[in-house]
Simulated scan of single mutants.
Amino acid sequence: MKKILITGAAGFLGSHLCDRFINEDFHVIAMDNLITGDLNNIAHLFKLKNFEFYNHDVSKFVYVPGELDYILHFASPASPIDYLKIPIQTLKVGSLGTHNLLGLAKEKRARILVASTSEVYGDPLVHPQNEDYFGNVNTIGPRGVYDEAKRFQESITMAYHTYHGLETRIVRIFNTYGPRMRLNDGRVVPAFIGQSLRGEDLTVFGDGSQTRSFCYVDDLIEGIYKLLFSDYNYPVNLGNPDEISIKQFADEIIALTGTKQKVIYKPLPKNDPLQRQPDITRAKEILDWEPKVSRAEGMQKTLDFFKTFTKEELNKREHKDFSSYSQV
């Protein structure tokens, strides 16, 4: 049985990765310091013999006994609310945490895949964004703690590949949504759904003309799985190129939920990307991958998940004013 370490395992993407590799008959070692993760996301796995969990911060030394075949590094705050609230931890997990895990991969002779992000492109001057674009990022702006942590993460990963011959993979993840997202964590999908279910008006920043491209989580997990077992060492975009404006998306959510809220507008946060659409040509050619789940189907599944929350949970789960946060 192959053994894989998944960091950030109690988070949105990490928990879905745990499920996938358990279903593929791997022995899964899950690691998370629970600063943004939730054990409820992986509670169903604790009874399994081929699953183990460690409450640990990967910014500190990481020890895993015995053999290890693969590492998936998904430990990082991913929403603006989180990385603006804990900027130092965000920088540390992208730098020190990545360094620790690359060292572990080198010691174990394991293949490592690190989770990067479309945010390395910043507010892009190229559209759609392909992997050869270097980005337009403000290193000292409010988003810099996340953007630069991920850019450094890519750099040190490639350095380990080039200098040590380590087997590395880099995935650049575009907007992804689905069950187990934290309600109202500042990202646009749970924020809009949460506002709709509470009967509130939907908050759009700027004039709503900025665009996003939303990928359903099952599609993303399939792409990550294929990338891990590919022979490609350079960054690969994974996302859904079906682009939509935030205003149009707000209207879709109102129609989906059958509610009658209005859309209200607030100032656009500093350095908020005005366009976001992945060029997935490389993923198609190298991985034979492209998303299968339509936004209508994926959003219905996501809405059904959030509908399971009680009224009390809807009102207490980090319900706050998002006016100072980026809409991602």
Score class of each variant (00 low, 15 high):
Lys226Asp: 05
Ala75Thr: 11
Asp218Cys: 01
Leu220Trp: 00
Ser15Val: 04
Ser209Phe: 13
Gly94Thr: 06
Ile22Lys: 06
Tyr83Gln: 01
Thr281Phe: 13
Leu238Ile: 02
Asp272Gln: 15
Val236Thr: 02
Lys311Gln: 15
Phe249Ala: 00
Gly223Thr: 02
Leu125Ala: 14
Ala9Met: 09
Leu68Lys: 07
Thr176Gly: 11
His56Cys: 11
Asp185Phe: 02
Glu107Cys: 12
Val204Arg: 00
Val120His: 02
Ile224Asn: 07
Ile224Phe: 01
Tyr177Gln: 06
Tyr160Met: 10
Asn271Ser: 12
Glu148Cys: 15
Gly178Cys: 07
Arg20Ala: 08
Met158Glu: 13
Glu52Trp: 13
Asp147Trp: 05
Asp219Pro: 08
Phe53Trp: 07
Pro273Leu: 03
Arg172Glu: 05
Gln261Lys: 09
Phe322Met: 07
Ile4Leu: 09
Gly144Asn: 06
Thr302Gln: 03
Asn55Arg: 15
Gly94Leu: 01
Tyr160Trp: 10
Lys247Phe: 15
Glu222Ala: 02
Lys311Ile: 13
Gln277Asn: 13
Ala43Tyr: 14
Pro179Val: 01
Ile22Arg: 04
Asp272Pro: 09
Val64Arg: 13
Leu227Gly: 00
Gly144Phe: 00
Glu154Ala: 08
Gln195Gly: 10
Phe249His: 06
Leu125His: 14
Ile173Asn: 00
Glu52Lys: 11
Leu220Arg: 00
Leu268Ala: 10
Asp304Met: 04
Tyr234Arg: 05
Leu34Gln: 11
Gly103Ile: 08
Gln300Cys: 00
Gln300Ile: 03
Lys49Pro: 12
Phe322Asn: 01
Ile88Leu: 11
Asp38Thr: 11
Phe229Leu: 13
Arg187Leu: 14
Glu285Gly: 10
Arg198Cys: 03
Asn240Thr: 02
Leu113Asp: 07
Asp304Glu: 12
Ala30Glu: 09
Val328Ala: 09
Ser294Phe: 09
Ser79Ala: 03
Tyr160His: 13
Leu84Ser: 03
Pro124Arg: 08
His99Gly: 08
Arg198Trp: 05
Arg180Cys: 06
Phe205Glu: 10
Gly208Val: 11
Met158Ser: 08
Ile286His: 03
Arg317Cys: 11
Arg295Thr: 09
Asn33Arg: 10
Arg151Leu: 14
Met158Ile: 14
Pro80Ser: 08
Ile253Lys: 00
Asn315Gln: 14
Thr168Met: 03
Val263Pro: 05
Leu314Met: 10
Ile221Thr: 00
Leu68Cys: 10
Glu107Asp: 15
Leu268Gln: 12
Leu17His: 07
Glu312Val: 04
Ile253Val: 04
Thr211Glu: 01
Ala43Pro: 04
Ile244Glu: 02
Glu131Val: 11
Ile224Pro: 04
Arg295Leu: 15
Ile6Glu: 03
Asn33Thr: 06
Arg212Leu: 15
Ile156Ala: 00
Gly258Tyr: 08
Asp272Met: 14
Gly208Ile: 09
Ala43Asp: 15
Phe46Cys: 06
Ile22Thr: 05
Asp272Trp: 14
Asp69Gln: 05
Ile112Thr: 04
Lys226Ile: 04
Pro128Arg: 05
Ile29His: 14
Ile170Thr: 03
Ile244Cys: 07
Val137Pro: 01
Gln275Phe: 15
Lys226Ser: 04
Phe46Ile: 12
Arg282Phe: 13
Arg172Phe: 05
Phe174Leu: 07
Ser326Met: 05
Gly199His: 06
Met1Asn: 12
Leu34Arg: 09
Glu252His: 12
Ala149Gly: 14
Ile42Ser: 02
Ile244Lys: 06
Gln300Pro: 01
Ile286Thr: 09
Gly165Ser: 07
Asn237Pro: 13
Gly11Leu: 02
